[in-house]
Design a protein around this nucleic acid. Sequence first.
DNA 1: CACCGCAAATAATAGATTTTGATTTTCTCG
DNA 2: CGAGAAAATCAAAATCTATTATTTGCGGTG
Lengths: 309, 309
Amino acid sequence: MDFKQMQYFLCLAQEGNVTRAARQLNIVQPALSMQIAKLEKSVGKQLFYRQAHGVALTAAGETLARLAGAIMQNIDHAREEMARLDGKISGRVSIGMITSAAQSTLATSSAKIAARYPEIQLSVCEGYTEVLLDWVTTGQLDIAIVNMPPGKSTLTAHHILDEQMMLARRPGSALVLPAIVPYARLKDIDIVIPSRRHGLRRILDAAAAEAGFSLKPRLEIDTLSAVCEVVATTDLVTVLPGIALHAALAEGRLQAHRLKKPAITRAVAWTTHPRRVVSAAMTAVMEIISADLLAAAKQASRLTFTAPR
Amino acid sequence: MDFKQMQYFLCLAQEGNVTRAARQLNIVQPALSMQIAKLEKSVGKQLFYRQAHGVALTAAGETLARLAGAIMQNIDHAREEMARLDGKISGRVSIGMITSAAQSTLATSSAKIAARYPEIQLSVCEGYTEVLLDWVTTGQLDIAIVNMPPGKSTLTAHHILDEQMMLARRPGSALVLPAIVPYARLKDIDIVIPSRRHGLRRILDAAAAEAGFSLKPRLEIDTLSAVCEVVATTDLVTVLPGIALHAALAEGRLQAHRLKKPAITRAVAWTTHPRRVVSAAMTAVMEIISADLLAAAKQASRLTFTAPR
DNA sequence: CACCGCAAATAATAGATTTTGATTTTCTCG
DNA sequence: CGAGAAAATCAAAATCTATTATTTGCGGTG
């Protein structure tokens, strides 16, 4: 009776469909079929009835589901208790972040992590979503914090937050804008945004296409701090997610407007390789970073310009 | 957190010595070291202090030991409950038995198994200890019931019983023998015993060497039923374990004497490949067979001749 | 009743992980 | 300081697991 098999079994018991359960488990259907077959052999009892429209638990299966469920709960509980033990958590954790995330919280988060978990060796790099995901896949990174990968990726994604993209500009800028700016307004404004290599740009382009126009940025800069700096010192505007703006907003160097038609949201998630254990160190690190990112997004949202002063 | 790792961890926690624990687990020391290292990495905490004379649990290790112990108990409990479910246990089980075991209980045991577990497909063969062990190693057999393999084998052994070898003869034979026969007495008697290929013969030869003589059997027969038949109809005697004699004793066709100087005991065990799961079907089958063998040994012991009538 | 389509099983291959055996490092003790 | 015991490290091998491609079985349909 293997631990992995129990997980598989419980997932299948819930889903009642091998193909779907396999998808949930990030494996292919025959892999799940085989493991279930193996489990049935080792238990010596048939656990599922195979029907044309999926599978259903037998009596023995029901019993095992009950028992295995309890065991899994115990295991989860044990995990938590181990994590709570305030002995030193240790380990090496290497993370890749998209620029907006790195920009907003990397400094404070890494300081917190270093203080709270002196035995964790943290290594962070910055990069584009695709590249980071690639590095997770090949094992060069433990974790990538990226824009929620669209479509099916082979990686496991843990949602961190959804946030709105906001238009940012210099507080004293001559530009007259409503509190909530229609996205199409960008057609006529000089803007500075990241290049097409950047995930944010793709989100912006997609939204522009939806709104029926195309973006013609005056400047393309992938370094978000530089974008903020440019916007703070010129009459150019930009569109960035809250977490990339919150520092500048807090300092009053930028002003942010919500967007509409469409309102643009992007999701941030951390992804790991589905077949590697998420160590306690990784969990600890990601708890801190996630909390900081969320706080940054909230603050940015609070600081968003709503009525001209 | 893997199931196997937990087992390894608990064993090591008990033993406090990697090398010894590894031996218990039927793996080599580096394999255990590595799995423990992996577990520590995934928990993010050091679990053992490495000392010159073994390892000792850290505080975190103590906690995990407590938690993991509980989980393992749950798992055991679940296993039992699943086994108790009197739904059909199913599966294929192939067993090899030494002749003495096959002789004594195969018929009744297999009948019981067929009746109790109609869904189990049982296949039994008879053979010499070495050959059977070899077949388990290569996977041609699931289980071998053999004389307790001396020295270290790579296989996992489950003890069934210890029993004494007994001298057997025809009730009406002219031979005058004390209730408990000194082994050296065999020097002067015509005996029929198995050939040197047979495990029992090796036990007898070893005992004879210990007693300072060597056996010169009049007949060498490996088929134990034939040995009994010969002894029952001639004045030849034999030395066999109780379970090989009990049928003939029960029918009164043979008479058994204990031996001394030395008393010869042999242990019977069932062995499996250490890295293959023992399925519920195997457990069920072996429970029945073990019980029957034990009963046969007890009966033989009861029927042993003690005082001439 | 043949045909399509979904769902699961099977098979062969590729990819990982575990185990092994050999070797090295570390620590204690005489 | 050397000997010995115990654990760590390393490369090769054996074993398991997952993957792709294919087959089988069952139900609904034209």
